[in-house]
Amino acid sequence: MEPIITASNVNVFYGEKQALHDVSIAIEPRAITAFIGPSGCGKSTFLRCLNRMNDLIPGCRMEGKVTIHGQDIYAPAQDVVLLRARVGMVFQKPNPFPKSIYDNVAYGPRIHRLCEDKTALDARVELALRRAALWDDVKDRLGMPGTSLSGGQQQRLCIARAIAVDPEIILMDEPCSALDPIATAKIEALMDELKEQFTLIIVTHSMQQAQRVSTRAAFFHLGRLVEVGGTKELFNAPTLPQTRDYITGRYG
């Protein structure tokens, strides 16, 4: 399959410190790719290269090339706003805006002027909430603040908020690490459905989660991409000793 994202020889520096060394990877469309590895291995940093969130960090510098559909997203002509509309993001801690549930989901469509009128916006909000498996929970209280929901619901609201912009790719940075096992199971089930329409990339600390949800997995260690492959193959027959040590729990 033609990869949707191709990164070649990516180096990232925070000031003097090099956080990523020569990372090259191709990511398949309509699949879930999991980035795994111990804390500080650079997996989140690499994830944030894919929608240029690292641009916001002072002193952060990036070398190499990242293309989406063959288009260099670090090219001077690339509009960051457009990029982030196409590559949505869900964060580690649920971060709904302190606005109503409706306004949270409607925010993206509003700033990008995606809807002609209120009816279209309502329909889009409903669709996004349905796709995020949250509609039935909140359809009677769309005016309530998003922050009044439970942690798992808040995270699904954040996913709905990202979906409402209709991105091609959704980046998830440890989306379940602040949630309990039940909420985590719901989010994982949701990811499984979402991969039919979106390309998902998740960063996770949990190897069980990576095995449960992902089709492909990439193992990062000390700022390098050590091994990448199908999740089953990587976990059952890792080719490198480092990967084997990590997935069998010897360190990390």
Partner: peptide, 8 residues
């Protein structure tokens, strides 16, 4: 970050 992530 949430706003930037949505393309604000």
């Amino acid at each position: 970050e949430a706003a930037y992530g949505l393309g604000a």
